[in-house]
């Protein structure tokens, strides 16, 4: 249904802000237990939120959900969450790194930083998904991913709690698929099936 070339995807990056908790839950809970492509998530959160998000999302899946740690290798079967107040980046050797650099787009973690660094590490083997959110973090990252041959999805703005973020990404002209949340789940499941 979703076209050729997706069997090469080696990593999925997801960015979201306002409204993201519900959207992430929707996607995560429908992933097959044997989904064997690592997922990296930036969700804008309050610096005080601690390890709330990995604990929360962990309830809805059999996949291992954990907070990203510095120099950690990216493994299949894991969902990595950027810690609050740290940027999450992907290194060339497919390890994770964290920084406490300035905020980007008023955000730390920044979706752009994850997307751009993941694009440079995974090239055309990356799938990026941008969900609901109230600012335009992620739009630049989407452009970089597309430049390097990766595949991009934006949540359909009509189905997003806050449409600014997916809308900004769509307006860059670098989004391959505009999908509703349930379609994103189907997309991911089909992708994992093709791979196995």
């Amino acid at each position: 249904m979703f076209g050729p070339g997706l069997d090469k995807i080696k990593a999925v990056v997801i960015g979201t802000s306002a409204g993201g908790l519900r959207a992430l839950k929707c996607i995560i809970e429908k992933l097959p237990a044997q989904f064997d492509i690592p997922i990296l998530i930036v969700q804008h959160l309050s610096p005080q939120s601690g390890s709330f998000l990995p604990n929360y999302l962990g309830q809805f899946t059999h996949l291992q959900v954990k907070e990203a740690e510095p120099n950690e290798p990216i493994l299949n079967g894991y969902v990595y969450i950027a810690p609050a107040n740290y940027h999450l980046l992907v290194e060339k050797d497919k390890k994770l790194s964290l920084t406490v650099d300035e905020k980007v787009n008023f955000s730390r973690p920044s979706i752009d930083l994850l997307f751009e660094s993941a694009a440079e590490a995974f090239l055309d083997q990356l799938l990026a998904i941008l969900l609901t959110g109230a600012n335009n973090d992620g739009a630049k990252g989407i452009i970089r991913i597309h430049q390097l041959g990766g595949t991009t999805i934006a949540q359909h703005p009509e189905s997003a709690e806050v449409k600014t973020m997916p809308q900004s990404a769509i307006e860059t002209g670098n989004i391959d698929w505009v999908l509703h949340l349930n379609e994103i789940s189907v997309f991911l499941s089909q992708m994992a099936e093709k791979k196995s």
């Binding site: 440079e120 090239l123 055309d124 430049q147 390097l148 041959g149």
Partner: peptide
């Protein structure tokens, strides 16, 4: 497709 390859090449050069 070709432009992806060219961009990946430039990226490699930049990394070096």
């Amino acid at each position: 497709m070709d432009s992806h390859k060219q961009n990946a090449h430039l990226l490699h050069v930049q990394d070096v």
